[in-house]
């Protein structure tokens, strides 16, 4: 984020915030506790983040 993004960023937070949370579910509770609407997407990196296995899977067509 740069200084130029500042006003736009502030404008975003000035409106009602709605969040799509991808991955770690722990953030969902914190946001909901603040009264923010959250949609959680259950996502994990391929092969649990194992780069070698993920590369192998990619070659096998996943």
């Amino acid at each position: 984020m740069t200084d130029q993004d500042g006003p736009q960023y502030q404008q975003l937070l000035a409106r009602k915030v709605e969040v799509v949370n991808v991955g770690l579910e722990g953030f969902v509770k914190d946001l909901r506790d603040c009264g923010i609407d959250v949609v959680h997407v259950d996502w994990k990196p391929s092969a649990g983040g194992d780069p070698q296995m993920a590369a192998l899977l990619a070659k096998l067509g996943v």
């Binding site: 994990k44 391929s46 092969a47 649990g48 296995m53 993920a54 899977l57 096998l60 067509g61 996943v62």
Partner: peptide, 8 residues
């Protein structure tokens, strides 16, 4: 098995 390992 690809879908199992990919998704966990």
């Amino acid at each position: 098995i690809r879908l199992v390992v990919d998704s966990g």
